[in-house]
């Protein structure tokens, strides 16, 4: 069977859902951050696949991935800083304990 766009889309969907699943079940902020990265990668795969398989005149899709990576890098930096901050203030990285905003 020839590998087509559908294959790429399906594995990216699988990766996305695994990341989502991880976000929903994990309680550690680091794990959640990692799962977010997984989801971003799933999206990037989609972009690359569309750029390759759809009739595109240039590499705009790949440029999008570059931007996405830049944003992801920023997100990781800020996310880690936030985690440090939370850890310093609450002495924990378990998000179940971070419920001081609960109504």
């Amino acid at each position: 069977m020839i590998i087509g766009i559908t294959h790429f889309l399906i594995i990216s969907a699988a990766l996305f859902c695994i990341g989502l699943y991880g976000i929903l079940i994990k309680r550690n902020l680091f794990s959640i951050l990692m799962c977010i990265e997984l989801m971003l990668n799933a999206v990037n795969i989609n972009l690359a696949a569309f750029n390759y398989f759809l009739p595109m005149p240039d590499l705009s899709g790949q440029v999008m991935i570059l931007f996405s990576v830049a944003v992801a890098a920023a997100e990781v930096a800020v996310g880690l800083a936030l985690i440090f901050r939370v850890y310093r203030d609450f002495r924990t990285v378990n998000i179940d304990k971070l419920n001081s905003m609960k109504g």
């Binding site: 087509g4 766009i5 559908t6 969907a13 859902c17 929903l24 398989f53 009739p55 005149p57």
Partner: peptide, 25 residues
């Protein structure tokens, strides 16, 4: 939840069968 989402997306991807699989450019 994640499984439902995955199957829904897969369903969409597979039923959208008219996707061009070849890059003409």
């Amino acid at each position: 939840l994640a499984g439902i989402l995955f199957f829904l997306m897969s369903y969409i991807f597979i039923t959208a069968g008219t996707l061009p699989t070849l890059n003409t450019v």
